[in-house]
Design a protein around this nucleic acid. Structure first.
Lengths: 214, 214
DNA sequence: TAGATTGTTAATCGATTAACAATC
DNA sequence: TAGATTGTTAATCGATTAACAATC
């Protein structure tokens, strides 16, 4: 607890990637500056919220002018840690694991898949993109020999908790979890869940609701 | 607007699938009843919130007893629309599309993939699970001939907006979007976004923050 | 009945929006 | 300079938590 950052709330953080995306498009379209009002129209959030959000990280704007697009883009990139390359491993070389290994967006954002692991002998030794699928039992050694903070879990739910345990014991710092369970990890380990069927259930709820309310 | 439902807020809705998951496990473990207090310990949310949430949908509990697990499970299932089968199509037969077509959790929850489409001649005609990949240009006809509410978009981002347009014009009701852009659709069309790189960026932010604050 | 636990109201907390003075 | 737009404070709104009366 040495650095002076007013604790940023999770809702704000979850908005940052979206800002980053929009600013990227604006930059690509050679837009030089944008006001919170114009960005508000584009993104369908209030100008007030935009200014509040940006100001939590420092004064990126200029009165009477607005925000410089590429400067703001760069700043948010830094905040999100885009400026560094992150090495990532994937545990589970099934369909989702393979899809993620092939997902170029990750690499564009500085996330580099350096290892894919599975315990299925039929998968071990196969190649996905330029990665050979390795035996899951070698993960601890792999983590010792390489500097890896992030693991993606794409194993079936009945194995996910044990995998998370193993990762934590080998000092992983952050986990992106696709398994359909909540992992139990120490507070200092960061977990982001992607529960696809939960998302589909939300959709289903809203669908029923909208049909009923016609 | 005919049915009397006090509008449930999105945060509550997003908690329902998680409740459903935990109640499913309890049911599988033959737990008959549970109090908000015990569920609170299990799920790490306050008992107060649990009771508030459940009460929005009606009195599922009983004073002095708690909640009947299988009854509550069933009720939440109904609320989430699990009681019906939903036919779903996937637009985009790339890696993610294929992974989703093979994702058994969707079927367990009553979501049945009935068609996969792509515009790549190399993919059209191939078979994924028991689904033949069809030409994306035939989607409008397919939607006319079948009763489909939900489409999953897994095409690259530069095609996603056009695909969403096409789907909306052919009366799709709900879209699960994996493309890395925000779709522009009419208000009555339901969209749930799965922005995987946004999730990874959030992870990256939290990772940097936790390292800095050691 | 006494004990437990809900349903529900009231209090608190946090997030969003509005407003405007500061300033480019 | 005048106009525009931020940074920031204050007001509002909504969500969470606490408390407790109702009741099984």
């Amino acid at each position: 607890m040495s650095v002076e950052v007013k604790d940023i709330s999770p809702v704000v953080i979850s908005r940052l990637p979206r800002y980053y995306r929009y600013l990227g498009s604006l930059k690509d379209a050679d837009v030089e500056r944008i006001s919170s009002k114009d960005l508000s129209d584009l993104m369908k959030v209030t100008a007030s919220q935009i200014r509040q959000d940006f100001n939590l990280f420092g004064g990126f704007g200029q009165q009477g002018y607005g925000y410089n697009v590429s400067k703001l883009y760069e700043e948010i990139g830094k905040i999100l840690g885009i400026d560094k390359i992150h090495d990532v491993i994937i545990i589970g070389a099934g369909h989702i694991g393979q899809a993620l290994a092939n997902y170029s967006n990750f690499e564009n954002r500085g996330f580099k898949i350096v290892g894919i692991f599975d315990n299925d002998p039929n998968l071990i030794g196969t190649t996905i993109r330029d990665c050979k699928v390795l035996d899951a039992s070698t993960v601890p050694d792999f983590l010792k020999d390489n500097n890896i903070d992030i693991a993606i879990i794409t194993v079936p739910k009945n194995q996910a908790v044990a995998v998370a345990d193993m990762l934590v014991h080998n000092n992983i710092k952050a986990i992106m979890n696709f398994a359909h369970v909540d992992l139990l990890v120490p507070d200092e380990v960061i977990v982001e869940n992607v529960h696809l069927s939960d998302t589909l259930l939300k959709l289903s709820y809203r669908l029923r609701e909208s049909i009923e309310n016609v």
